[in-house]
Design a protein around this nucleic acid. Sequence first.
DNA 1: CAATATTTGTAAGTTTTCTTACAAATAGTC
DNA 2: GACTATTTGTAAGAAAACTTACAAATATTG
Lengths: 292, 292
Amino acid sequence: MGESVRERLSASLTTASKADRVLANFMLSELSSLPFETAASLASKVNVSEPTVGRFCRTVGYKSFKDLKDHLKQDIGQKPWLVSDRLHDLRDRAKAGEDQLAAGLELEISALVAIYELARSEEWARVVRRLATTQRVYAAGFQTERGMAQILVNQLQYLRDGVQMLDLAGGNFAELLASDPKQSCLVIFEARRYSRLSFELTKTAKAAGIPVTLVTDPFCDWGRDLVDEMFVVPTEFNQFWESTAQMASLANLLVNGVFLELGPKVEARMESVTQLYSQFTGYVGKPVNRTS
Amino acid sequence: MGESVRERLSASLTTASKADRVLANFMLSELSSLPFETAASLASKVNVSEPTVGRFCRTVGYKSFKDLKDHLKQDIGQKPWLVSDRLHDLRDRAKAGEDQLAAGLELEISALVAIYELARSEEWARVVRRLATTQRVYAAGFQTERGMAQILVNQLQYLRDGVQMLDLAGGNFAELLASDPKQSCLVIFEARRYSRLSFELTKTAKAAGIPVTLVTDPFCDWGRDLVDEMFVVPTEFNQFWESTAQMASLANLLVNGVFLELGPKVEARMESVTQLYSQFTGYVGKPVNRTS
DNA sequence: CAATATTTGTAAGTTTTCTTACAAATAGTC
DNA sequence: GACTATTTGTAAGAAAACTTACAAATATTG
């Protein structure tokens, strides 16, 4: 046997048992962080028992998980694999002008940093509390930001009732605008070129007394004095146009905040949403659950 | 203390005793193979005793050699994207365990690095080419990943014709599955718990000869041997559940790739899409454009 | 060059990681 | 649908990795 760890893992995929396949797949996906894992840590991540990890390594031809790691050392060779080295590598390429894209990486990283700073602000806490407690939560996004609203909504729905996307499908925004302003709030994702809808929606919602949170790019000049909170997410990463990608990260952090705010009581709901999905659609590996 | 492993080791060089200096030097020069070492193996390599290794790690501020290795894992080294010292603050809090979140920042950063590396791969180029040239491009995502598909679709639509979301609204996926496989391709976003739909859709699409690209988390064990390309995006950022946020970044990079592939001819289309939006919806600052 | 302080190693613990034995669960077969 | 074979988990034991206590060696200081 002279193949590399990667090759052996791949080869095992065809023959291996269920647990082994899960392991092999995970290892392949996370090859570069394997050296930091231990049989036990791996086991808990993929939900198998510790001995299964050891046994699997033996079936693919190593003495133990430790032994597998030692071989990994060989075939990682000298390409950079520590995050810091990889980052350096990308940065060097960017400097050398070899890699247009890589130049954007650092910008994207600083956008992330900015978001994590936002998440520590007073305003953030306020929004999170509102998203956790207001009876009806609406999110909107137009053009390319529609997906961001979708992400927020889909996730929040796992945690609580009364969350929905707002769009112009019905021709107006009556769902929100003709509702009790005390029991509603709105989150809008927006970026250049700013849709007239965001603006009109915000104005009308504010006039009705509905709290509005705006997540937008650094160029937005219409929102600041109109909305309750404005979270500015950097969007220029050397790409051909603005990338609002990091807004997804912001949305996830918001959801995480709401989770922490709501506490253990969300578990019941998450459980039941999962069970409903299982019933109507089903998950991989399990048959559709017919609420037996 | 908020410095990286490398920084701490370097700093120790000036003050440390003879054995410690030897250790620090060795570690610095072999930083990337440290995770494979153990206190004992290191000790014998530099001819000191095992406890000396442990003690040294403690003098530079780690609990043990193991602890030092663990920090190496997340260590991203120099941070040129830091415009202020505010991140230090974040990091310190993370170290002190006050701020669960801040620890997630570094994980999220390394996910980004991973994505930018993906964007350099053979497979990536292949997918970009396909997304640029195939007549009909479909994207799907279920549960919380629906928004990711949405993001990809909404952006691609600015660049080219024939791009659409795929969902179960019609009860089947006939749009794609009953179409000419030579002229279609599919991108699926997926993460735990894996929807049965992704799996079935992939299987059927493959059987029909339609190329499938899967963007998923490291735990996915059903796709690897089924799809044409599998992009694995790290998703564990210390949040209460997996965050697929960085998939948005991947989607944006894909779109950017397609833009570069298509070249200047996209401008006309972008212009006309913008103009259509202006006509039917309008932008902030300008009245609805009535195709005067 | 004592006398003291610091550094380092040895040997015996402690904890962590991995393995083995066996039983329970799951999948395959007639 | 019982029977067998395979896979997987539990619990206890072996091995490895790391720590502590203390003594020996090496610096440092007056």
